[in-house]
């Protein structure tokens, strides 16, 4: 199997670091931003940023995916 590239994996780990492992750093009420407690604001921002990260992963992976799919199609025709 074509393993995902190092760049793609690292980019995909960022949301995990931000939303999961770093919880004790952001789980507090103050400072309140846009009227929201800090932890709620932090998680909501990272929902959006997770999509941004995954878009980056998709861009990084897209060329290889296209290549792999082309190869499979060729192999299918050869049979």
């Amino acid at each position: 199997m074509r393993r995902p590239s190092f760049g793609a994996i690292s980019l995909a780990l960022i949301p995990f670091l931000a939303m999961c492992f770093s919880v004790s750093a952001w789980d507090r009420v103050h400072p309140m931003i846009l009227g929201l407690p800090f932890n709620l604001f932090w998680l909501l921002s990272w929902i959006v940023l997770t999509s941004v990260c995954m878009w980056g992963v998709y861009r990084l992976e897209a060329p290889q995916i296209a290549k792999a799919e082309g190869r499979r199609e060729n192999a299918g025709r050869a049979q």
Partner: peptide
């Protein structure tokens, strides 16, 4: 209260896993 916030975190992260 606070522990409910896990719900906001796990769904987006589950898509990171399912992407691969």
């Amino acid at each position: 209260g606070g522990p409910a916030l896990y719900i906001l975190a796990y769904l987006p992260l589950s898509y990171v896993v399912s992407f691969f």
